[in-house]
Amino acid sequence: NKPHPTSTQVSPFETYLILCHSEILAKDDRIAFVYHENYYIFRAILKHMGLQQKMTHCQASKKWENMKKRYKELKNPPEGVKAFPEMWPFFSLMDDAMEGRLEGNAPILKEAEDEKNRMDSQQQVKEREKEVMERERLVLQRERAVLDREIAILDRDRALLEREKATMERERATVEREKAVMERERTMVEKDRDAVYKDRLTLEQEKAKLGRTSAATESTKKIAEDSSEVKESDTMNRKERFFTLFEKLIENL
């Protein structure tokens, strides 16, 4: 398709803006477009003209909105205001676009559609990735819930162990006290045993002393008895000799 004759009198950028949007207007029959539709159109225009590094799609969109506003002001000026549309070099081309006379003259609309399809495909990939991430997040949440329950169980077990440990500590303290009491009692028993041992030694010594004294007494008694027996024997012998002599004397008489 040949470009509109007026397009040679204006800058290429504005011409492409008008031609591309005229195609959209012819298909959609709307003057205002949603943001994401304009986004692909402006990206394609800027890329086609090598301006993607010098201008953003937002700046291009703003320029298009300003052109539409200027066109409306010139096309339908307020009552009492005289307009001069021919003074604006884009009016004729804009008027043809708005009236649908430029259908089929969008040289890069296919690029915009391809860009939109590519971006939609990327968006679908992102959506699928987002769904996968959401499922993974749900799995992680379930695993986190399981871990939280396990942590709660471990906390209860730890609390139980702490209570058991405290009980064991109290029992150990009781055992230590009883052990200390037993140690004191054993010390007292040892002291009593030492005292008994000393008393036994004293008794043994006294017993030995008594034994020696008793032995000496027995020896003295035996000596005395032996001496008494000797004396008695001498006395008896003397008596017997006396009686014998007396008997002999009587016989001699």
Rank of each mutant, 00 (worst) to 15 (best):
V146D: 03
K130R: 14
K110H: 10
T202K: 13
A159F: 01
D148S: 03
D96R: 02
K75P: 06
K72V: 14
E99F: 03
V125T: 09
M98H: 14
K198T: 10
D157Q: 10
E176S: 07
D199A: 12
T167C: 05
R177A: 01
K126E: 14
R177I: 00
K72Q: 13
E206G: 06
V196S: 09
R163H: 02
D148V: 01
E178S: 04
E136L: 10
A152R: 06
A173K: 12
P78S: 03
R137E: 14
E129S: 10
E185V: 07
R128Q: 11
R163N: 03
R186G: 08
L138F: 08
R70T: 15
T187P: 08
E129G: 06
Q122T: 12
V146S: 01
E143V: 13
I151G: 01
F90V: 08
R158G: 10
N105R: 10
V196A: 13
D96E: 05
D157S: 07
I108L: 08
V81M: 06
E134F: 07
A97K: 00
R156F: 01
R118D: 11
K191E: 12
M188I: 12
V146R: 05
R186E: 06
V132Q: 11
V181W: 11
P89A: 00
E169W: 02
P77T: 00
A152D: 05
L203G: 05
R193E: 10
T202M: 11
R137Q: 14
N117E: 14
R137T: 12
N76C: 03
L201D: 12
R156E: 00
E190R: 15
E86V: 05
N76M: 04
E169K: 04
K72A: 15
M182S: 07
R170A: 02
P85Y: 00
A180L: 11
W88P: 04
R144M: 03
N105A: 08
V81Y: 07
T202G: 11
L140A: 05
A166R: 02
R186F: 08
V125S: 08
G100F: 01
M133E: 14
N117V: 14
R200W: 07
K82W: 04
L74F: 07
E171S: 02
R170Y: 03
V125K: 07
A166C: 01
E115C: 07
M94G: 02
A159P: 04
N105Y: 07
R184Q: 15
R137V: 12
N117G: 13
M98R: 08
Y71C: 04
G80I: 01
Q205S: 13
D155P: 00
R142H: 11
L109V: 12
L203A: 10
R135Q: 13
N105Q: 13
Y197T: 15
T167A: 05
W88R: 03
N76P: 02
E143Q: 15
R70S: 12
D157A: 05
E79K: 15
E176I: 02
A112I: 04
D114S: 13
A83C: 05
D194P: 09
Q122H: 12
F90A: 15
K191I: 09
E136F: 04
K82C: 09
E162D: 04
